[in-house]
């Protein structure tokens, strides 16, 4: 087990190295620069700026500098916002996105699994059709439309929740819902089909023939087996959700991490692009690792081994 995890960490480092390298070259290939704005600088000032940030060096020197600073997890100062370091930007906004993301995940997974299970339990009956319709609606309605509707009805008309801002738990409910609904729909569909597959298997019939009730069979037998494919889907979803959503954070005026992923690229803010990319990659790779370890706990047939395949 320990050997397996160590081995996986080596893979994670290799993956990170590749991600950093590819990102670096893609950034350079993209036209434009952090200092290109409406008002053009005199050439002397631009040269000075380039020198200041080391952008006048040949590409291999820049690449080396990037690798070294990234290895130290110091992404440097933003090229667009003077005096703000990339690390500070992430440190300030990530906790907000994380809170929102975890809330959304709890909603999405909780309701998704519940809806999916209920739909499978009442397969081809009224409840199933209602739940499936809700799930499909959830998947198809874009989060910005849902966000607007939530703001209008629950915020403005019913005055139940604040419309926007970030000032405590009550502020997080609407945006978390807006993020969660799409994922909830996906999870519900996934759980439903996975449960139906399990329900056709002999061991579920066996469990029923033992005299267990519908819900007994569900909780004790089929759910655990049905969740395996769902857990696979959760890793990338989790990484994506906790690092923030550009659209939802914009609509609810939440100072989260999501916007930096988009603005850093349009600004050609090289340091921030690298910072957010590496940060996201680390979270994603760790989430995948955690899921792989979880498999072993969910399904005893899966054994994690390091070194040689046995």
């Amino acid at each position: 087990m320990l050997k397996y995890i160590l081995k996986r960490f080596v893979y994670i480092f290799i993956a990170l190295f590749l991600i950093i390298t590819i990102t670096f070259f893609l950034m350079r290939l993209a036209p434009g620069s952090p200092f290109a704005s409406e008002k053009s600088f005199p050439p002397e000032i631009e040269a000075q700026l380039n020198a200041e940030y080391g952008l006048d060096n040949p590409w291999y020197i820049q690449y080396k500098d990037y690798l070294i600073s990234t290895a130290q997890l110091d992404f440097g100062e933003s090229m667009k916002y003077k005096g703000r370091s990339t690390n500070d930007m992430i440190a300030e906004s990530f906790p907000i996105s994380l809170t929102l993301g975890v809330e959304a995940m709890i909603l999405a997974v909780g309701l998704g699994v519940l809806f999916g299970s209920v739909a499978a339990l009442y397969h081809n009956r009224g409840v199933d059709y209602v739940v499936t319709t809700i799930a499909v609606l959830g998947i198809s309605v874009p989060s910005f439309i849902l966000a607007g509707l939530l703001q209008y009805f629950l915020g403005l008309k019913l005055q139940l929740f604040p419309i926007s801002g970030w000032n405590g738990f009550i502020y997080s409910i609407l945006p978390a819902t807006a993020i969660a609904v799409t994922h909830m729909g996906f999870i519900a569909k996934l759980v439903r089909s996975s449960m139906l597959e399990q329900n056709n298997s002999e061991y579920v019939k066996m469990a029923r023939s033992k005299g267990l009730s519908k819900w007994g069979v569900l909780f004790k037998h089929s759910l655990r087996n049905a969740l395996l494919p769902v857990v696979t889907y959760l890793a990338p979803l989790f990484a994506g959700v906790i690092t923030g959503s550009f659209i939802v954070e914009q609509i609810f005026a939440i100072p989260g991490l999501g916007k930096y992923f988009v603005t850093s690229i349009t600004n050609r803010d090289y340091t921030v692009i690298m910072g957010t990319t590496v940060f996201y990659s680390i979270i994603l790779l760790l989430a995948v690792l955690i899921v792989d370890i979880l498999y072993g706990f969910i399904d005893p047939r899966i054994k994690l081994r390091g070194g040689k395949k046995a």
Partner: peptide, 8 residues
């Protein structure tokens, strides 16, 4: 082969 719950 399939009548027993594989995870219990």
């Amino acid at each position: 082969m399939t009548a027993l719950n594989p995870t219990m």
